[in-house]
Design a protein around this nucleic acid. Sequence first.
DNA 1: ATTCCAACCTGATAGC
DNA 2: TGCTATCAGGTTGGAA
Length: 291
Amino acid sequence: MPELPEVEVTRRQIEPLLLDREIAALETTADSYFFLTPAAELRRALKGRSFKALERRGKYLVGTLDDGWRVLFHLGMTGQLFSSEASSLRLLSATARSALAPEEQLKFRPDQHTHLHLRFRDQGPDVFFRDVRKFGKVLLLAPGDEPERLARLGPDALSVTGELLFASTRRRKTSIKALVLDQSVIAGVGNIYADEALFLAGVRPGRRASRVTRHECEKISTALRQVLERSIETGGSSISDFLAPDGTDGGYQDERRVYARAGDACYSCGTAIKRRVIAQRGTHYCPRCQK
DNA sequence: ATTCCAACCTGATAGC
DNA sequence: TGCTATCAGGTTGGAA
């Protein structure tokens, strides 16, 4: 599930594949929940253009075209942005893969879940956006257009300070976990890294935000930076669907301390990790280490 | 203003 | 074996 590190890893790998390459054609699936801009409009807008920048805003990617229009991407839950050079064997499930002829297993062929397929004038590697569940999004932006969904994002999780977090916890009745997941408070944190950071900070995810101290907010913001930066270094977490654009797995799932470890022993104290639903999300914590 | 919850979508898996 | 129910979670939008 792509959160800030997975989106950043994607950005770093896809950016060089997009910049200054003239788009010969964009192929798409039919209009659906995925397309915030009608597919035909998107095809027209991209043809003949090239990208001049690809930036990350929280979990969003924003590509700027050479004519000043921009394209907003969100990977949702199962979105994958990758190159035709990817070792794409692993893009498909084992069952889907076994249905393919051996030569088809080696090279990725766009399937019904491949909503965007970019071809370039230079005939180099293609770029695909595949998303099984269509929680991902693509949106075309006219020059100067700042959509609500970007405008309401809080500061990026990599630059958040304890001070800022503390300020936004005041008088909030909700849980600290819900607050950390709120993209208008901090942009980029999702379920995995929220649990991991709260573990490192020693704070129970269900604690009422208004009862978290200034010092604990410092620890949470430090922990957030630590887990996010470390995850980017290791290529992100490949717990369910994430695959880097080059087709490789991330490495951070091997460094998880609590996420999806319910019943297993805490690495610090040996107590069994608990799982319960907090902020409408499966939440994992150590009942002994986190107060 | 804040919080909660259903809806969006599909594949994997647990249970019968 | 095969079918059905349940779960996963990012974001939005509407209800409480």
